[in-house]
């Protein structure tokens, strides 16, 4: 429904402006706080114009949180999740859409159900698996009696062990193992006309050739969208890194470090809250996701609304 009346137009713009203000005011306050000194940031009423302390604040926060290596870690994890997700989801959706195999629907629904179980919901079992990635197999072996059989026959005690705690693998894999991307691809692949698939077969292209020469070039916008979403998602992870990484010095991620800068009873020990440091750090930590979104948004928007051509 499209109405064209000046009054309504004005109203719409007012609502839009209000929404924008609601979003921007906190960001502005963060920027302002990041540029003040400890005293200024704690005076009432709240200062509304930036000061000149941004660089000193940032330097102090950076040193205090050891941001240099943490940024590298966050990048490794975010890029790892993006690459893993884009590849895995693409291959899975390819198999689900273009191949007719036994149990296809079963697998489809199994993947679908994981949409209802985000990482936060199944964090305890996921942690258990991360602590020993082979434990599911151990369970299977124990339950089916194979380990007992091996033990009695050869005297070998079967105990599989693969610890993922405190590693990039442990950080990345559980974030990759989700259904989101698979669905994005699947919906797109379903719109590919059968004739195109058949034309490629007539031209002699095998499945992998078709995937590489036709599907992937056609899914560029979807890949961009998925990559953007996954980058932001992985960058912003808090709970999982907090749990799986105890060796913070080597594997800590920026978002977790950032939370340590946020003043509370524990960090300040009753002293004056250091909001100026927290805000300065927040601004830098926000930068990579924003940069990625801005850089990718042209493709990203097209991929999400799926109206290429």
């Amino acid at each position: 429904m499209i109405e064209r009346t000046p009054v309504l137009n004005l109203m719409t713009h007012l609502i839009l402006g209000l929404g924008l203000a609601i979003i921007l005011v906190p960001v502005w306050l963060a920027i302002v706080a990041a540029t003040l000194t400890l005293q200024e940031v704690n005076t009432a009423p709240v200062e509304l114009w930036p000061g000149d302390q941004f660089w000193p604040n940032l330097k102090e926060a950076w040193a205090q949180s050891d941001f240099g290596p943490k940024f590298v870690n966050s990048f490794i994890v975010a890029v790892g999740v993006v690459v893993g997700k884009v590849t895995l989801a693409c291959i899975t959706a390819f198999a689900l859409v273009f191949f007719d195999f036994r149990g296809r629907m079963l697998i489809f629904w199994a993947i679908f159900i994981t949409l209802m179980l985000p990482l936060e919901v199944r964090i305890v079992p996921t942690y258990a698996v991360a602590a020993n990635a082979l434990s599911p197999f151990q369970t299977i072996l124990d339950a089916t009696g194979i380990s007992w059989l091996l033990n009695t026959l050869s005297g070998i005690e079967v105990s599989l062990e693969w610890n993922l705690l405190n590693s990039y693998t442990g950080l990345i894999l559980p974030l990759v193992a989700t259904a989101t991307g698979t669905f994005l691809y699947r919906q797109f692949f379903l719109t590919i006309p059968d004739e195109l698939v058949e034309a490629a077969r007539m031209d002699g292209a095998g499945p992998l050739r078709f995937l590489w020469d036709v599907l992937i070039p056609l899914s560029k916008t979807n890949i961009a969208a998925l990559a953007t979403i996954m980058f932001v998602y992985a960058w912003n992870q808090y709970l999982w890194p907090l749990l799986v990484i105890t060796d913070r010095a080597n594997y800590g991620m920026v978002v977790v470090q950032l939370s340590d800068l946020v003043p509370d009873q524990l960090t300040t020990g009753g002293g004056t809250p250091t909001w100026h440091l927290a805000m300065a750090a927040t601004l830098v930590v926000m930068l990579p996701p924003i940069a990625v979104v801005i850089f990718m948004q042209r493709w990203f928007v097209r991929g999400l609304i799926n109206t290429d051509k």
């Binding site: 195109l196 058949e198 034309a199 077969r201 007539m202 031209d203 002699g204």
Partner: peptide
């Protein structure tokens, strides 16, 4: 035999050209 081994070429109703 697979389509490519049969030596047939096909013209489709909706042309099925590779859009990219």
């Amino acid at each position: 035999l697979e389509p490519r081994e049969r030596g047939c070429a096909m013209v489709f109703q909706n042309y099925a050209l590779y859009p990219h």
